[in-house]
Simulated scan of single mutants.
Amino acid sequence: MAANFWESTQRRHWQFSKDELAQMRENLEESEQSLVQMFPLPQRRHLNIYFNQQLGRLGKRLGVRQQALATAQTYLKRFYCTVEIRRTNPYLVIATALYLACKMEECPQHIRLVVSEARTLWPDSLTLDISRLGECEFYMISEMHSQLIIHQPYRTLTSLQSDLFLSQDEANLALSIINDHYMTDLPLLYPPHIIALTAILLALVLRPNSPGGTATNMAAATAALMQAQAQAPGRTSSSNSSQNSVGVSDKERQQEARLNKVQRYAGFLTESNVDIEGMVDCTQELISFYECHEQYNDKITREQINRFVKARGLDKP
């Protein structure tokens, strides 16, 4: 992608503060108070998880690559910033977002195939034909003001993998975290490079079976960021004690090597002059999301969505 993020419509029109995003959503709900009261929905994070799962299921049937799935998820978020969810059939919006994203990411899917697979996947929730999908596509493009180019964090991760000496396991974990961030509000709050740098940090410090669990991981990530913020420019951390260690266990050596890598990363952040406060916020949001994911109930979320879809006749043409 040749376009510059700093001059893009994504930065100028689709990056908000938390307060701005909350106000937009509050205004939407106030404009549809009767619908909101009649059809309560799960918390937004749980909705995002469900939408992500449905998008993934459709994408798998169509053989869509991850870049297009990420773009489709971003389109969903933008669309539902301007349109109240209960006014739409989310299954139609999901299918449309993926169809449009595949066009933009230069891996187009035939509209007949998308319609066919969506019908098969959601037979009880969506009556779909080509004209209906086409109409929803124009509606979505209009709501996004034809601002369809999406900059993703994947490029930053790829370009920094060798510079930061990330192992393949660490790079894969960072990639997984980037994929997960599309189930949060972060794509609407921070630039892609901040997301990628946060994912790398978490890949370096996250240890699922570590004593203390999430709290320990959160503390380790925050400590690394605070070190970067407090460190004087040009100062580098040094720790070569492993070369002089005698009788140290393999586990201790691995722990020390990991600590050295985190310290080097903190030095890199200091020299690059990135938004550390933004990374702290991203870290907290992602850790909070993973905790929230543990309480997710697919059955309840699906039932609440299907209830308003059927009650309002949105499953019919």
Rank of each mutant, 00 (worst) to 15 (best):
P211M: 03
P211Q: 06
G212L: 05
G213E: 14
A215G: 11
A215E: 10
T216V: 10
T216F: 14
T216N: 13
N217I: 08
M218N: 01
M218E: 00
A219H: 01
A220C: 07
A220N: 07
A220E: 09
A221N: 06
A221F: 04
A221C: 08
T222S: 02
T222Q: 07
A223T: 03
A223D: 03
A223L: 03
L225A: 00
L225I: 00
M226R: 07
M226F: 12
A230K: 04
A230T: 02
A232T: 07
G234C: 10
R235M: 08
T236E: 10
T236D: 11
S237I: 13
S237N: 15
S238Y: 13
S239Y: 06
S239T: 12
S239N: 10
S239E: 06
S239K: 15
N240Q: 14
S241N: 14
S242G: 14
S242A: 12
S242M: 13
S242C: 12
S242F: 15
Q243S: 07
N244C: 09
N244D: 03
N244V: 07
S245I: 13
G247D: 05
V248L: 12
V248A: 14
V248Q: 15
S249P: 12
S249L: 10
S249I: 10
D250H: 13
K251S: 15
Q254Y: 00
E256C: 04
A257N: 06
A257E: 02
N260E: 08
K261E: 03
K261W: 06
V262C: 01
V262N: 00
Q263H: 12
Q263D: 05
G267N: 05
G267S: 04
T270L: 05
T270Q: 10
T270S: 11
T270K: 10
E271D: 13
E271T: 05
S272I: 07
S272Y: 13
S272C: 13
S272Q: 12
N273H: 15
N273C: 15
V274S: 13
D275V: 09
D275F: 08
D275P: 11
I276K: 05
I276W: 02
I276N: 05
E277D: 08
G278L: 14
G278S: 11
M279S: 11
V280E: 01
V280W: 00
D281T: 11
D281G: 10
C282H: 01
Q284F: 05
Q284A: 14
Q284I: 09
E285G: 04
L286Y: 14
I287H: 11
I287W: 14
I287A: 06
S288Q: 06
S288D: 06
F289D: 00
F289H: 10
C292S: 13
H293M: 07
H293S: 05
E294Y: 00
